[in-house]
Amino acid sequence: MTTSLLSAPAATALRDALLTDRERALTRLYRRAFPLVRRYVCGHGGTAQDAQDVFHDALVVLYEQAVGGTLVLTASASTYLVGIARNLWHHELRRRDRLPHEALPAELELQAAEESADTAEPAFAVLDYVERLGEKCRNVLLAFYYFQQPLTQIAAANGYRSVRSATVQKFKCLERLRNSVRRAFTAETIEY
């Protein structure tokens, strides 16, 4: 099979699978690819926990590329996933060589690499307020803005009668989040 034949439909199929039933699609990828990643990491100076950490990082990268429409597959998704994990593990080994006494969780490293200094700090501040939202609001916002589920699916999953109702609810939740953050920042400004 040629690359051009494989790439677009395979990436689209993966995207659809992740959006339709995330748990099932991720479990399938996990079953296929994790044993290979564990064998590789454990054979190259890492522990089982290291293998799990880089594999989760690789899955996050794959998920974001797949649902964001930027994924180009030239091999199976599992092969691609193993490739990302191997690269991440090499990167981590180089980091450990440079800074042998500084333990940095792979999760933070991935975030640090992808967030600029200007946006990382406010993002972590906002995170606290996302955690404090009610469960329904939190689910709606994450489903739309991170997991990139279509509003039709969000409406059905949360019992909204229409896409329009789900859209209004999404903006109400976003407004609630913004107001919480704004109140907190205003209070901080007054305190100092």
Binding site: L59, V60, Y63, E107, Q111, E115, T119, A120, P122, A123, F124, A125, V126, L127, Y129, V130, E131, R138, L141, L142, Y145, Y146, F147, L174, L177, R178, V181, R182
Partner: peptide, 17 residues
């Protein structure tokens, strides 16, 4: 401010994933 909310939601989404 809204851009910062989106960054925060991305961090929260990753955490959930």
């Amino acid at each position: 401010a809204q851009q910062q909310l989106y960054h925060g939601l991305r961090v929260a989404g990753r955490r959930q994933l």
